[in-house]
Amino acid sequence: MNFFRLTADLMHLLSIFVLLLKIQKTRSCSGISFKTQLLYAVVFVTRYLDLLKWISLYNTLMKIFFIASSIYILYLMKIKFRATYDPSQDTFRIEFLLGACLLLALVFNYTFTFIEVLWTFSIYLEAVAILPQLFMLSRTGEAETITTHYLFALGAYRGLYLLNWIWRFYTEHHIDWIVWVAGAIQTALYSDFFYIYYKKVLHGQKFELP
């Protein structure tokens, strides 16, 4: 564990708490893409098939939290606050993402086993899971400030993982190409968002696309 990784994980936790706060406070999931949340649930379930393999208490607790919270968010969006979700805004075709990620995982993996291919699939899927949310944002052209804080924390989490990998490469000679490439793509997808967040939200303005 190093500073970047711990901060990244805490940002990831924070992003989920901010999302839960947004839904509970406004009693609405408007502006949130159900498809992105569904993809995150798929990511966590397929990645943490090794849940029973002991690495550390920290590792196990975080895995349980990520799986449980992602499913709870689906429950909030699909059942509790169903009326506030507008599917006509959430039109990104996730079938293509799922198909492409599965195909890539079958071809580019470390070991061709069931668990390993699903782990690789989850890494690729996480990289693009935010696309329905960003697509929704670009369609509506604006977002509630708390929603942008959620997205910022989520993007920062991945950005910090990049620093963690650089750190681990130099201190432990840790190499993980699959995770690196997917993580770099995932962070790059946030670049436009980061720019507008910095320009507008951090200066007290509403998030609006130019």
């Binding site: 690495i55 590792n59 840790h174 190499i175 993980d176």
Partner: peptide, 10 residues
């Protein structure tokens, strides 16, 4: 090249 990818990261 050492392909060390123990799944210790989340």
């Amino acid at each position: 090249e050492q392909l060390k990818h123990e799944k210790d990261e989340l």
